[in-house]
Simulated scan of single mutants.
Amino acid sequence: MLETTVLVEGESDRLAVEMLAKRLGHDLRMERVSVVPMNGATSIVRFLDRYGPHGAGHRLLGLCDFGEAAGIGRALMRAGMGAGPLEDHGFQVCNADLEDELIRCLGVDAVLDVIADQGELASFELLQRQPSLRDRSVEGQLRRFFGGRSGNKIRYAPMLVNALPEGQAPPPLARLVASFES
């Protein structure tokens, strides 16, 4: 069985992918799937050299933010994986980022429930009152909440995935995990 390496931008993405895979009944170790955070999409060349066709020869999949998609595409092409849409190469693209996808999939109220369960609703409400954030949408404020404090993305990613209703997941994340079976 061919080893599969899933390249993701960061640790929060790794945790979200692994949590959804677990919820869907995947045993990543048995399926020989490793989710590898690159510590930023700009590091992809190093990971393609290590795991790609000129390295270990693993089956490669990935998840990236829209803003990083063009760079990922160029890196895949340079690594000999061809041109074309990222999805054709097993890479799924989030509209903005994974947190944005999770917020839209869950809905604001469910996300606020997760924050409240962690005792941080007052902290979020304080953030909402900051002059630079007052005019942003609640979704934008939530993205700032998750991305603004060190460790929040990592802490909340698995909780947000765990809060998803059964059978519901952001499309890029759902397609990525479904491709583990291919």
Rank of each mutant, 00 (worst) to 15 (best):
T5Y: 05
T5A: 14
V6N: 05
V6D: 07
V6S: 09
E9Q: 02
E11R: 12
S12N: 03
D13C: 01
R14C: 00
L15D: 00
L15F: 00
A16Y: 01
A21M: 03
G25Y: 03
D27C: 06
M30N: 08
P37R: 14
N39F: 06
G40N: 10
T42I: 04
T42R: 15
V45S: 15
V45A: 14
V45R: 13
R46M: 06
D49R: 15
H54C: 05
H54D: 07
H54Q: 14
G57N: 09
G57F: 10
H58Y: 05
R59Y: 01
R59V: 03
R59Q: 12
L60F: 06
L63F: 06
C64S: 07
G67S: 09
G67F: 08
A69Y: 05
A75Y: 02
M77C: 09
M81Y: 04
A83I: 04
L86N: 08
G90M: 14
Q92N: 08
L98K: 07
E99P: 02
I103R: 11
I103V: 15
I103Q: 06
R104V: 11
C105R: 10
L106S: 10
L106I: 11
G107C: 12
V108Y: 09
E120I: 01
F124W: 11
L126I: 07
E139T: 14
L142A: 03
R144P: 00
G147H: 12
G151N: 05
G151E: 09
K153A: 13
Y156M: 04
A157K: 03
P158C: 14
P158R: 13
M159W: 08
A163Q: 10
A163W: 08
L164G: 07
G167F: 05
Q168E: 08
Q168D: 02
Q168I: 14
P170N: 12
P171Q: 15
P172D: 04
P172S: 09
L176P: 00
A178Q: 10
E181M: 07
E181V: 08
